[in-house]
Design a protein around this nucleic acid. Structure first.
Lengths: 343, 343
DNA sequence: TCAAAAAGTGCAAACGTTTGAATAGGGCTA
DNA sequence: TAGCCCTATTCAAACGTTTGCACTTTTTGA
């Protein structure tokens, strides 16, 4: 790009050698005399030569760049995943191009197009809440283009997914509440379009059933927006109506759990004495709250790292996407803190 | 990249035309018959043609990609900045390559190198805590390569900086505490290498002086690590020693403020009755704490957006880096919540 | 002493696109 | 019917690398 950026040709001219010799000398190819290599490297240093990765990409049809599409950047969990992705990519010599879909399908589609135009080697995707068709993914997957999905993974045959064991995490959280003597546990669910929402709800139900507790459909409250205000309002309404009389909340995410905490406090209920609360994701702030919020920790950084390793292995043909294991499920860990411990 | 990706040449062969005609037809250049344009576009559509951005970059010596170097991704403030950057870049047709330095100077240096290799059009930087030399920046700046610094901005002559008015923010926060009747205000400072640390400390001191309160050097406590545990420990020690008898804390960041809250609670002090606390940055969790934490809000997304606009304007030569205003200072806003309100 | 092998280097094409200049064919005017 | 100007198209070079092959020159072996 730079006006004054030295190229291989410049070095060649300066040294009265051909471009091919320079190229080979810099790469320590056999068949170039040590004397020439020395001179070339010296001159490259002196002229502040920097290889042009764009030209290399064109030549090799490889950009050493991967794309990442996430719903939003300002999101604790996704930021941990991105951190893991960036870490592994950097260490293996790849660049990371980042875009956020802002939970918009349209943006997701255009991002994929731009990335393909940019000759990206592969892409990591967590799709948006709005995404109800996967045609934009299958179209490129069918061309043999490598995509690895993480966290929010579609039900596409043959797609490679890296997820967390949402079912088990929810099961553990609910079981924990039951073991602490809570009997009337309400689940604050997420947006219905996401598989993780269904898995967590199923884990919740399974834990109730296993412990002989009834599963009431009206104990599952969808919180599609995912804001503190939303869950606070819903829980407040629930507490003031006489129909349900909850003594615990298992929320699909920590934001929802905070809303529940606030609503309970407003209603004069003591946590964890009167009401137990467990969230999901174990965001940074959980241990800063009073009482400290119990939550199901998801290994975000690990998820990003694993997904990237798989993607790069596919790109570098170290593994075959046809025959490989199609989904990797990572374990969650219940962080039981004050908000759910009666004993 | 893709094996089966159609190129201009493929279309040319298919239609028995030359590559140049295809190129011009696709771009609606004059001098191509409407009939040909129609046929070309039809065929392009049919063959699922996607322009190769890499080839274009090589030809035009422009990659339409900007680099972003930040200390860490998992950091609320930086994630808001990145969000603003990504937003503007995307809307103006640029890609964003993201790297995190992990607060390491070495990583910062190698990232800049890689990015230059990748023919990036410009770069946005917030430097690491470790960075004590700016030679790696000045070297490329001197070549006329566009760099815009944000938040953590170096004292390099001619460098373009986008910052927040840290001095004024700290001044406002301290003044607010004084107006609430707190008299013995301790400042929890940040890593000494950062300019923002000094600015915030200066704002704190100025507010004390303006209100006729003494400035004790031992009332300024450095917290270089920036963890909750660190500030909790330091504040606990301070409270148990008889030397200083603080009735308020103004922390350089919200994490430090949380540590102070915890230490006060441990010491049996009531917030805001016995002790007032104000943080800096207004992280998401501030309003989730009990009591809600007062904090100085920084416009992160706006900062990212502004910095990107300036960078792209320089890249596109809409403004001249020589003659332009060298630094943009954004206003902070004190969010006074429960943790600092006695009245 | 001469051919053959080895060592060192250069040529040219390729990756996919853009673009200034050249060309071909046609219709018009004088 | 020559000269000219359009219009539509093609040629060829360029961006910076890499790489198979060809070409010198030197060294080796018999």
């Amino acid at each position: 790009m730079k006006l004054g950026q030295a190229t291989i040709k410049d070095i060649a001219r300066e040294l009265n050698l051909s471009a091919s010799t320079i190229s080979r000398a810099l790469k320590d190819y056999p068949g170039i005399s040590d004397e020439t290599k020395r001179k070339v490297k010296e001159m490259a240093e002196k002229m502040n030569y920097r290889p042009n990765a764009i030209a290399l990409s064109l030549r090799k049809s490889r950009s050493f760049t991967i794309g990442v599409i996430i719903p939003e950047v300002v999101h604790f969990f996704f930021s941990t995943v991105v951190s893991g992705i960036e870490e592994v990519a950097q260490s293996r010599g790849y660049n990371v191009i980042l875009v956020q879909s802002n939970e918009k399908l349209e943006r997701e589609i255009s991002s994929i197009e731009t990335m393909l135009s940019n000759q990206i080697d592969g892409v990591l995707v967590s799709y948006s809440k709005e995404t109800n068709t996967f045609e934009h993914f299958t179209r490129v997957l069918d061309q043999g283009f490598p995509i690895v999905f993480f966290d929010r993974a579609p039900q596409i045959p043959g797609a490679i997914n890296v997820m967390v064991d949402d079912y088990q995490g929810a099961f553990d959280a609910t079981t924990h509440l039951i073991s602490q003597g809570y009997k009337n546990i309400v689940h604050l669910a997420g947006p219905p379009s996401l598989k993780i929402t269904r898995d967590r709800a199923n884990g919740y139900k399974a834990a109730l059933e296993k412990n002989g507790l009834p599963v009431h459909p009206d104990h599952i409250i969808p919180c599609p927006l995912g804001t503190v205000e939303e869950s606070q309002k819903l829980v407040s309404e629930l507490l003031s109506s006489s129909a349900v009389n909850p003594d615990a909340f298992f929320a699909c995410n920590d934001i929802g759990a905070v809303g529940a905490m606030m609503a309970c406090r407003d209603a004069g209920l003591k946590i964890p004495l009167d009401v137990g609360i467990v969230g999901f994701s174990d965001w940074q702030f959980c241990s800063m709250l009073e009482p400290k919020l119990s939550s199901v920790a998801q290994p975000g950084t690990l998820m990003g790292a694993k997904a990237t390793e798989i993607l790069l292995d596919i790109i570098e043909k170290k593994i075959d996407p046809e025959t490989m294991e199609k989904s990797l499920v990572l374990e969650t860990k219940l962080m039981d803190r004050d908000s759910s411990k009666r004993f």
